[in-house]
Simulated assay, not measured.
Amino acid sequence: MHVERELPNDEAHDLIDLVADIADKELATRAAEFEEAERFPRELFTLLGEAGLLTLPLDEDLGGGGQPYSVYLQVLEEIAMRWAAVAVGISVHTLSCHPVAAFGSPAQQHDLLPSMLSGRSLGAYCLSEAHAGSDPAALRARAARTTDGWQARGSKSWITHAGRADFYTSFLRTSDERRGGISCFHVEATAPGLSAGTPERKMGLRSSVTAAVHYDDVPIAMNRLIGQPGQGLHIALSALDAGRLGIAAIAVGVAQAAVDYAVGYARERETFGTRIIDHQGVGFLLADMAASVDAARALYLTAARRKDAGQDYGRQASAAKLVATETAMSVTTNAVQVLGGAGYVRDHPVERYMREAKVTQIFEGTSQIQRLVISRHLANGPGRASAPR
């Protein structure tokens, strides 16, 4: 699973080596068992938090790792190569911390970030609703003002870590204005009236819990409003381009794992007295798979470096997410094909990689939404694109 990486300094190389070592020892050895049992690996997020791996891209003065996004994404890729569900959990947790880190008051950052950044508390990002998956401005779950704060009512759908998270970064409607009527709140898991639905029975990422979150007159203290009233949609969208890059990196990690396994199998398996990798039909297929993974990795790194340089990167993030996830689906499907019948059974991990790849085309904006974002950039010209997230 060694990848020749482009990293900015020795510190980044050491970080990748540390991540690979932890992932090999703690993640790769558990992934198949936990996925089969649909067991959520909460203890591993504590371990990763203690190692400083949950919040690498956040500023050091806030307690984060201060790493460039191009390095953080390669960390995610390394983890996804061993266990995609854990990589997705890190990406979601990072998104959940972003509002407090970027928009919270100094008091909120002082009170909340130490636990959030250490792994002692795990976050959930509550934006999607059943009728508003790709249209966050259509949210209906509400928070109404009370004498001492807010009171929330409604439901969120498809929430990663629902029922397992320690806090819920919640985007709730506080007025009827379509885009300016949404606010962001930090809600503790212990809040009265907050509950999670039955976990979804998913095709893949089975060890990652996904469920609805219900707010039944949940009280929210005044000092748990993040940013200003009505600023919620801006806060949500400010993180989604970065989140898309996270999913792109995870998709590349899954695809790389599939290539590595298929190549290893093709080197060992013989037909007609010859290794199947030496049959041109298989060898060329593997070559195409490897080249497409390299291309997808280069694309997400290009977008990440634009982000690190303070340049606009929305179109590049959508392109990276689109290409990386489509690549992951194609490559994992072909990995199953290389293994033949062996690829279709759970004795080998490629069928799991194929199931995991599919969801990357759906969350953080479907492939169709990414095409819409890119096409609107093309239609409107540089710096003028306006598209749904």
Rank of each mutant, 00 (worst) to 15 (best):
H2V: 15
E4N: 12
E4D: 11
L15V: 04
I16Y: 07
A20V: 14
D21Q: 13
R30F: 02
A32M: 11
E35W: 06
E36S: 12
L48Y: 07
D59S: 11
G63R: 06
V75W: 01
E77T: 14
E77S: 13
M81G: 15
M81Y: 06
V86S: 08
V88R: 05
A107V: 13
L112C: 11
G123L: 01
Y125H: 13
S128W: 01
S134V: 07
A138I: 03
T147Y: 06
G149V: 04
W150K: 11
R153Q: 15
G154Y: 11
I159H: 02
R164A: 08
A165Q: 02
D166T: 11
R173N: 09
S183A: 12
F185L: 02
G193Y: 11
G193W: 05
L194S: 01
A196W: 03
T198P: 00
R201H: 12
R206C: 10
A211L: 08
H214V: 11
Y215H: 13
I220T: 05
H234Q: 13
A242W: 00
G246T: 08
I250A: 07
G253Y: 03
A262M: 06
V263Q: 09
V263T: 04
A266Y: 08
T271H: 02
F272C: 02
T274D: 00
I276N: 06
V282E: 05
S292V: 00
A296K: 01
R297Q: 11
A298G: 14
A298P: 00
T302S: 13
K307P: 00
D312F: 04
Y313P: 01
M329T: 01
Q337L: 03
A342M: 13
Y344G: 09
V345I: 12
P349G: 09
V350M: 11
E351T: 14
K358D: 07
V359L: 14
Q370F: 01
V373C: 08
I374P: 04
